[in-house]
Design a protein around this nucleic acid. Structure first.
Lengths: 236, 236
DNA sequence: ACCTGAACACCGTTCAAGT
DNA sequence: ACCTGAACACCGTTCAAGT
């Protein structure tokens, strides 16, 4: 992470975007705790107070990081398909965007409604749930659930160790797997059996696809309860 | 939070449990960032280094807090009902335990497998998923999903503002609702419509019950896919 | 065995200046 | 308009002592 920005003379014009990108790069390399205002200033060849021209305080910076992650999502325009297919696509986009920077994914959990790209995402999800036939209160609750479930999934990503260096990372994962696999098979038979899966997936893509599917199927299950009570809406 | 422990003379024997409980009390009153080793020491009438006899470092303390939260869950013994009913009950217990201390609930997200009560919880959930007919790889993935979804739900709890004092809290919520409700209805019609729900629920209990139901229904949906491919297992 | 006390290298953030 | 520099009140954590 002593990246190109830290070379003497590379005095790029400081602004929110540059600072946020630098913060994300630091976290990618060394974990979220490595994001400090002072470290950021140092990395950008600037004094400790310079970032404060662009951020009210550190919380504002963290909001900016969450916003940047969400800005990577490109919401599909296709309105041709069914609500559940579209929802699956949007949620997959969210997961894909967060997976690019797993060390800061957790910041999004409580910040979706604080930025324009987050609001657009939520609005899109809420619209699809409305299409599915839910009333506005359930739309808010189910929508929040869907978003936070998937953010949490990326946050707890098996094998999402900070990433000091690939070799050390592997060693850490190996240690973790051993500690699970060596639990008492009498007390924790199912954890021992699933130890490999819990530590790191054989296939991350299918793991996240399953997560999206679980959310969608959950919503469908709730919806079918709904349609037994009220007039059934045309299926999308 | 300048609680009974901070009175001069109340020198309770220091140990992990006392320290963890004090940390939770601090977070309940002032938010998770108020948990510092030094503050803890002060609250317990002890020097800054005293807690280090009982915790290797701050991370160890946070693990201890997560463990304490999970220890409040009492796993039901009843094996009389169907897997989905039992799973719903266990997950509801998890939610109930976390709701007691929403400001530290986030600590559990990445720490379930690091403590005995967390391992017991996971083992219980995994067993029920095995009963439901899933193979060990899916058990691990679906189990992780179920646990992290519900932890996330409590973490993002609408109205889970730290809690300085009830009056200030209400003001903050009001401000939040207004900022959502006053969004452009042209760009964010569904968010505006759901603003009340998003900021704080009319009924928290039913909100969390819905969360549990979404998880269960999701799992059932996946399971029915499963049973079309492999031999169907006896229900129940 | 358990706690103290001083010290170190860091933080976020303020305020008043510089250019 | 944008950045600097010094300062303040706080952190987590070390090390060597005390009792």
């Amino acid at each position: 992470m002593t990246s190109s920005n830290s070379e003497a003379g590379s005095r790029i014009h400081l602004n929110r975007d540059v600072i946020v990108r630098c913060a994300i790069a630091i976290a990618d390399a060394e974990g979220i705790d490595a994001i400090t205002i002072r470290r950021l200033a140092q990395e950008l060849n600037v004094t400790a107070m310079a970032p404060y021209r662009h951020f009210r305080d550190k919380e504002d910076l963290l909001n900016g990081i969450a916003e940047q992650l969400l800005a990577e999502i490109d919401l599909p325009k296709t309105i041709s398909r069914t609500w559940d297919q579209e929802l699956a696509q949007v949620l997959s986009q969210l997961v894909a965007a967060l997976r690019l920077h797993p060390n800061v994914a957790e910041l999004v959990l409580t910040r979706v409604l604080l930025s324009t790209p987050g609001l657009s995402l939520a609005e899109h999800v809420f619209k699809l749930l409305t299409d599915a036939g839910f009333q506005s209160e359930q739309v808010g609750q189910i929508g929040s659930y869907a978003l936070s479930s998937l953010v949490a999934l990326v946050t707890t990503q098996p094998g999402a160790v900070t990433n000091p260096d690939p070799e050390f990372r592997d060693a850490l994962l190996r240690k973790k797997r051993i500690s699970l696999a060596s639990l008492s098979p009498r007390h924790y038979p199912h954890i021992v059996a699933a130890a490999d899966t819990l530590v790191s997936c054989t296939d991350d893509d299918s793991y996240y696809a399953l997560g999206v599917k679980l959310v969608i199927e959950g919503i469908k299950g709730i919806r079918s309860d709904l349609s037994t009570q009220t007039a059934s809406i045309c299926d999308g």
